[in-house]
Amino acid sequence: MKELSLHILDIAKNSTAAGASLVEITVEASHPDNCLTITIRDDGKGMSSEFLARVKDPFTTSRTTRKVGMGIPLFELSAMSSGGGLDITSASGEGTTVTAYFALDHIDRQPLGDVASTLTVLIQGSPAVDFLYRHTVDNAAFELDTRQVRQILQGVAIDGPDVIKWLYDYITEGINNLGGNLI
């Protein structure tokens, strides 16, 4: 993975595959704490404690085409390369939260990259799922809630090409206004 937004896409895809109806994605950058925190929280089917205990092992996966699952191990490796780490909490029937921490100024921390593209690909791929995206850089914040978008659309499909393009531009502009594109 070349950028953190690709990890976000990959991990959030696990959430939609787990039957989530709401996926909350949070990116928090704090210069005073020199910390970048990325959280992906869902209300999907969750994991048993037995599966959770071995979920960071690349030889654990729920996919059926191969016996390896690299998404979580790659995200953890990326976090650890910057002196950070990755936590997962989950309970069967209650959803899953994946949190990754990075040292903001570490030379090996990957750039955040194109989050707007990640979010529009997620919305396009799972138009029935709601996404809440929160991005903070120190005291500035941007938020996108697809439930609000749906209210405005009043039944018009959220994954139509015009809406997806508008979402991409809206998110890009919102993140750029925070300086979030420089993270």
């Binding site: 896409l9 990959d10 895809k13 996919r63 690299m70 529009t120 690909v121 396009q124 090409p161 997806i164």
Partner: peptide
């Protein structure tokens, strides 16, 4: 294909290009 393997290999910009071109 948008699993870990596809995403790591560059599937996201491929998908975006397809959606843009169709639009």
């Amino acid at each position: 294909g948008m699993a870990t393997c596809g995403i790591a290999a560059g599937a996201r910009p491929v998908l975006s290009a397809l959606v843009d071109e169709v639009a």
